[in-house]
C-alpha cells in the first residue's frame, strides 16, 4: 500500500514520511494548521505557503518548515507529493501522493462551498481517497453562506436596536476569518477577542486581505461596545469576560447548530449553521469526483458514511485516527481550547 495507517498516523513507507501524524516523526506533510492535524515535535514539516504564518505562530517560529504552492510537485524518496485546495481554512490542502502510477489523496478537512476566504476545493482524481466525515450524516446540509450571513447581519442589527452587544462565537482559525470577511461591517463597530486578534493579525502581516478589528481590552468601556459586534472563540461562553459588554446576545457559528439538542446544550441565544466542513451531500460529491476505487473514512461519522458508500457501490473502510474527535462526539468538545478545534 502506498499509504499505511499506523499508530503514529498516516504513513508512506516508500517515501518515509507521514501525513498529519499525531506523534512526533521525522518528516510530516501537513494538510492544514489546526492543531489536531499540525502537531508539535516533528523534525521537518512540509505544508502550503499559506499555512506557514499560523504554523509558526502555534508550533514555534523555529520549526523546520518547507512550503509549496497548490499544484506544485515535490519528490520525496521517489514519491511524488503535491498539494491541492481543500477549502477548509486558509492554506488547507489535500495531499496527493503518487508512485509507479498509483495515486492516493488525503483530504484532511474540507468543504466544497466557497467561503470568500480560502481557495475553493478542487477535486483530484485518484485510486484511493482518504476522506474526513465530520458531518457524514444526511441531517447535515448547509444553506448557501450568503443566506447565513444575511441572518447574522439581521441579528446584529436587531441587537443594536434593542441596545444589546452581539457576541458571535466561532473558532479562531477558520470561522473567525470567514466571519470578518463576510459580515456587513458597515452595520456598526466590531471588535475581536485576543485569541482571534492574534490569528487575524498574523494572517494580515503575512499579506492576507482581512479587515482589522481592534482587540477587546480594558482600555475600552461599555460605551465603546454599544451596538458592537464582538467576535470571540466559543470558550468565552459563561465566563466573566462577557461582563464588560453589559446586556448582550450570544450566538455560535457551527455546523452542529443544525440539531436543536446541540444548540440547546451550548446555552446560547442563537445558533448559526455555518461550517468549514463538508455536509453530507458535499462529502458524497467529493468522493464521487475523485473516481476513487477505494475510500477510507476518517474522523466523524466514520462507520455510517463508509457503510453508505459501500451500499452505493464505492468500496470503503473505516479508519481510526486521532483527528478531530472520534465518531460523533465532536459536539461535546467544549473543553478543547478554541485553537484545537476544527469547526
Amino acid at each position: 500500500m502506498l499509504l499505511k495507517f499506523t499508530k503514529k498516523g498516516i504513513y508512506c513507507p516508500a517515501g518515509n514520511f507521514y501525513i498529519d501524524p499525531w506523534r512526533p516523526v521525522g518528516r510530516a506533510v501537513i494538510t492544514h494548521a489546526h492543531s489536531d492535524h499540525a502537531r508539535y515535535g516533528c523534525k521537518h514539516y512540509l505544508a502550503h505557503h499559506d499555512s506557514e504564518a499560523v504554523m509558526r505562530l502555534r508550533l514555534g517560529s523555529d520549526i523546520s518548515l518547507q512550503t509549496m504552492a497548490y499544484g506544485e510537485t515535490r519528490t520525496i524518496n521517489g514519491v511524488k507529493v503535491s498539494l491541492h485546495p481543500a477549502g477548509h481554512i486558509i492554506g488547507s490542502a489535500q495531499v496527493r501522493v503518487e508512485k509507479d502510477g498509483e495515486i492516493w489523496v488525503v483530504s484532511g478537512d474540507y468543504k466544497i462551498q466557497p467561503d470568500g476566504v480560502t481557495v475553493p476545493f478542487d477535486p483530484v482524481k485518484c485510486h484511493t481517497f482518504i476522506t474526513e466525515s465530520t458531518f457524514g450524516l444526511p441531517v447535515y446540509y448547509w444553506q448557501p453562506q450568503s443566506l447565513v450571513f444575511q441572518d447574522i447581519n439581521n441579528w446584529w442589527k436587531q441587537n443594536r436596536e434593542a441596545g444589546k452587544v452581539s457576541v458571535l462565537c466561532g473558532y479562531s482559525l477558520g470561522k473567525a476569518q470567514r466571519i470578518v470577511k463576510n459580515v456587513d461591517l458597515s452595520i456598526g463597530p466590531a471588535f475581536s477577542h485576543g485569541a482571534i486578534f492574534n490569528v487575524n493579525e498574523t494572517l494580515r502581516e503575512a499579506g492576507f486581505d482581512l479587515p482589522h478589528l481592534p482587540k477587546v481590552t480594558s482600555e475600552y468601556s461599555k460605551k465603546d461596545f454599544q451596538g458592537a459586534l464582538i467576535i470571540a472563540p466559543p470558550s468565552v461562553g459563561g465566563t466573566t469576560w462577557l461582563k464588560r459588554f453589559g446586556p448582550h446576545s450570544m450566538a455560535i457559528c457551527s455546523g452542529w447548530m443544525q440539531v436543536r439538542g446541540n444548540a440547546r446544550r451550548r446555552n446560547v441565544d442563537r445558533g448559526f449553521i455555518l461550517s468549514d466542513h463538508a455536509d453530507w451531500e458535499e462529502l458524497l460529491t467529493a468522493v464521487k469526483a475523485t473516481e476513487a476505487e477505494k475510500v477510507y473514512v476518517t474522523h466523524g461519522f466514520t462507520s455510517i458514511f463508509s457503510r453508505y458508500l459501500n451500499e452505493i457501490g464505492i468500496p470503503a473502510g473505516e479508519v481510526k485516527t486521532e483527528y478531530g474527535v472520534e465518531e460523533e462526539d465532536a459536539p461535546a468538545n467544549e473543553k478543547k481550547t478554541p485553537a484545537d478545534s476544527t469547526d
Partner: peptide
Amino acid sequence: GHGRRANL
C-alpha cells in the same frame, strides 16, 4: 439521551 443530551 434525547433533547439537549442528543448525541451524548
